[in-house]
Nucleic acid binder design. Sequence first.
DNA 1: AGGGACCCGAGTTGCACAAA
DNA 2: TTTGTGCAACTCGGGTCCCT
Length: 301
Amino acid sequence: MNESKKPSPIQSWVGDGSKLSGKILGEIITWKIPRVAISHADLITGLMASHLDCDVARELAPRNAFARACSKLDSERIIRKIAEDNANISFQFTREANEGGKFHYYFESLLFLDKHSGNITSENLELEQLAKEEFGRCMEARTANDVTRLVQRLFERHADLFSIRDQGGVYFVPEVHQDFVAKVESFVRNIGGSLQRFSISAGSPQGDRAVQEAVAHGLQGIIDEHMEAVAKFGEDTRPDTLHRAEEKIRITKLKIEGYGLYLDKKRSDLEASLQQASELLRSRMSFLIGAPSEEVELALV
DNA sequence: AGGGACCCGAGTTGCACAAA
DNA sequence: TTTGTGCAACTCGGGTCCCT
């Protein structure tokens, strides 16, 4: 547990808050993912070519790929899970037919999925073959939905996205992440999509205010999440969870410092709010550990 | 032809649930 | 507990149909 001695990677994400290079505050970005399904292999290739973290594109678990396959197979039939253990899941396929204005249902077959290998078996060989083909396609294909989440995960792990629109889809990215945005742009273009970048210069009252509000709103959201999570801690909360909460508050503090120039007067509000979150965590830890609050060490705020 | 209403599909998000 | 995924809901844009 000597992590605290290591320099935190977050420092390099957010800078030291003392200056912005040039007069660029950051960029507004928005992306569009191609409609056609992209193979998992192509995603990995694209991530590697853009020097991005390949861990964000994991393989689908067989059960999830099978669920996707079922959605392709369920026209004219109903598919229901009937049993599950550690190794297998069994499904019943029931054919639905509209006969004379009424729906009739006919048992088709049982189908068994091995949760680890993805092997599919059924007494109905035709159905088994159909399910295997669709399952194989779903194991490999990634939808636009998958890729959007992947891009968001990349930013979550390596930079920051501040939503500037309640419905999402358009984000402000601080200037310090320009190089990372360029990598993501290269990745999105490699897989056939597009990523638009609009630089925001410092100095215009509207631009400065919009950036300040976006960053402050995003950071306040993170603090609110901390508060909500800490409030739920109970006697069954494990020590490592408490330490993770500590770490999250520390990272948020660094972000507030690092993005200080964007925040201006809102910085003190955020610091006060984070202080509250920190005190709440301290009191919860004190209660759960059974030690006086002042003895609960928090190198936070 | 132009405009409005409606429908449909794609993209995104929040929530719930299962696996690790 | 955290992380990843599916589902449902929502928004938006494009297409179609109907009315003026």
